[in-house]
Amino acid sequence: MAKSSTITRVTLIKDLRLEWRSKDALNSMLFFALLVVVIFSFSFDPTAEESRRIAGGLVWVAFLFAAVVAVNQTWARELRNQVLDAYRVSPAPANSLFLAKALGNFIFVSVLEALMTPLFIVFYNLRAVGPAWQLLPVALLGTWALVVNGTFFAAMSIRTRSREIMLPLLLFPISIPALLAMVEATSSILTGEFSAKFWIVLLVAYDVVFTTGCLLLFDIVLHAE
């Protein structure tokens, strides 16, 4: 039997190759986030000072919605030709499959963020007053927080009727502390008024708790039938 790290790697490479050839998730996410940026920008029309205060919220709301678009497609792809049932009967550990899917989504959403950040800077005249390098750990930890829960809840919602709408309904309430931490950390860094240290620690705690929880419980979700 193959090692679980091999299964994770193979599944991840397969997903990346599929995405590279079709670019379904990335294109829809990018266009969606672009629309959010444009609509917010002209509905608020903020000055540089104002935008520094509200940008944290806007950026993360845009990324959250875009991430939902991508994460929704994670498992739907495996329903065709009963691929998910094949996973279920195979002796491969469920966790390595989950990790591969979560890492894949993490890469997609990170690429999206890297492409969208310049646009945010242009549209909102952003310039960080606080230590800008801290935005990097906030982005990485925040993205992982969204993606690990998103991948997990997407696996839960493919079993329900109207699964597309089910994912945000499950994901948003649980993500409130992570979202608050990301938004507040980003705003603190941009305005330079507060230290973002506490929020980064909170994000680390959130990531550790939910990564452990999801890995422990994923087996039950995959085999729930």
Binding site: M156, R159, F210, V221, A224
Partner: peptide, 10 residues
């Protein structure tokens, strides 16, 4: 099963 999992995560 999935409801119990959600309750624990909540």
């Amino acid at each position: 099963k999935i409801a119990a999992v959600l309750a624990v995560l909540g």
